[in-house]
Structure formats: structure tokens, C-alpha cells
């Protein structure tokens, strides 16, 4: 049995937050789906709210402080990522975007991602498609085909979750589990010093 690491990034701000609630549902469903495929999973959650100041500092100084560095290492070293944001002004929140802004642009290459978003109204439901997917396409991550959007009304079903939302969560989790279970374990972070050309190569043509 292979143990996979799942990183969960939640940009929810309130406590409790529906963003975190959705992230937890997606996580539990993904862990269960991985078990069905014979893999174990460890989960590490990054609450971006606790890194709000760290992220602002990084934007100003160009480096991540110790606390943020640990969060970044968790996310970029994971076998799979669950990324959930509240919808602010018709897109992902600034806090959510800032976290992905400060990552090395190659650090999520090939990482399977499950996209989730929450909002007060279903009218924002395409945010996953028009805002989140292009972001992760730029990062060359591999988003699962199903993204999960939850509006306030989706939490109103029996057991706290609408049956339709529950089905979407299970489908998306299954897709992420397929992507994670299908890749070789032990992804290595990008090492900028590993493939520096020798100076003879740099000089070629000069």
C-alpha cells in the first residue's frame, strides 16, 4: 500500500467557513476514494488566513518567511492538491491568488488538483471554469475534470449537504484519486542548481 500525501489549501476567512467545510468534504471523499484504490493518504491542511501577513510580506520582500515556507513546501511536495476558495468579486479571492503568485511557477507542474469554490449564490458557479482552471493551466498542474462549486443553498439538504452536491463531491474525489493513484510516488521539488549548464555551454557561440 502506497501512502500518498494530500495538501489542502483553503482560503476561507470565517470560522466556521463554508470554504473549509467544502475542503473537508472533498478531502474525506478523496481519502476514501484512494483507499478504494489501495492507497493510504496523509492530509495536511494549509489555512491561508493564518498566512495572510506572511503572504503580504513575501509580496514586498520577494521571499517566504519560515512559517510560509513550511506551507509552501507542504503544497509543492504533495502528491495531490485540493484547492478551495471563496468567490470574491466574481473570482477567486485575492488571498488565494497571492498564495499561488508566490509559488515558483514550476513547482506544481504535473500535480493533480481538485478545484473547489464557494459563494453565497449559484450565479458564481462558473468561477471554477473561467478563473481557477486557467490559473492551474498556467502552473501546468493537472486539474480533475470535475470542479466542485457550492452555494449557500447546497448546504441545505438532509445531513447538511444537498444530494446533488454530495454526488459531485464523490465524482470529483474519484477523479482526483485516479490521477494521484496513477502517478509515481515521491515527487521531487524543482532544484534550480541541478541543471545549470556548464560555462562552456553558456559561452557557446560567443
Amino acid at each position: 500500500m502506497t501512502t500518498r500525501t494530500l495538501a489542502v489549501v483553503s482560503a476561507g476567512l470565517s470560522t466556521p467557513s463554508s470554504t473549509r467545510l467544502l475542503a473537508d468534504r472533498l478531502t474525506a471523499a478523496t481519502v476514501a476514494a484512494l483507499r478504494e484504490r489501495g492507497d493510504d493518504a496523509t492530509v495536511e491542511v494549509v489555512e491561508l488566513r493564518t498566512h495572510a501577513r506572511d503572504l503580504a510580506d513575501d509580496v514586498v520582500t520577494g521571499f517566504a518567511n519560515e512559517s510560509l515556507r513550511a506551507a509552501i513546501d507542504t503544497v509543492t511536495g504533495a502528491d495531490g492538491l485540493i484547492a478551495v476558495t471563496p468567490v470574491f468579486s466574481a473570482s477567486y479571492s485575492g488571498l488565494f491568488k497571492t498564495f499561488f503568485d508566490v509559488l515558483d511557477k514550476d513547482s506544481l507542474t504535473g500535480t493533480p488538483v481538485l478545484l473547489g469554490a464557494t459563494a453565497g449564490t449559484a450565479r458564481h458557479s462558473l468561477v471554477i471554469e473561467h478563473a481557477m482552471r486557467p490559473l492551474f493551466a498556467y502552473l501546468r498542474a493537472v486539474p480533475a475534470p470535475t470542479g466542485v462549486f457550492a452555494a449557500s443553498e447546497d448546504w441545505a439538504g438532509a445531513g447538511g449537504v444537498d444530494a446533488e452536491l454530495a454526488r459531485r463531491i464523490d465524482r470529483a474525489a474519484g477523479e482526483l484519486a485516479d490521477l494521484v493513484a496513477g502517478r509515481p510516488a515521491g515527487k521531487r521539488p524543482v532544484d534550480p542548481f541541478a541543471d545549470v549548464p556548464s560555462f562552456e555551454e553558456l559561452l557557446r557561440g560567443h
Binding site: P192, F193, V196, F199
Partner: peptide, 8 residues
Amino acid sequence: RSPQIAEQ
């Protein structure tokens, strides 16, 4: 942060 310059 450019290893190429250290290499140079």
C-alpha cells in the same frame, strides 16, 4: 539567485 552567474 542566478546559479549561472556563480558558474561564470
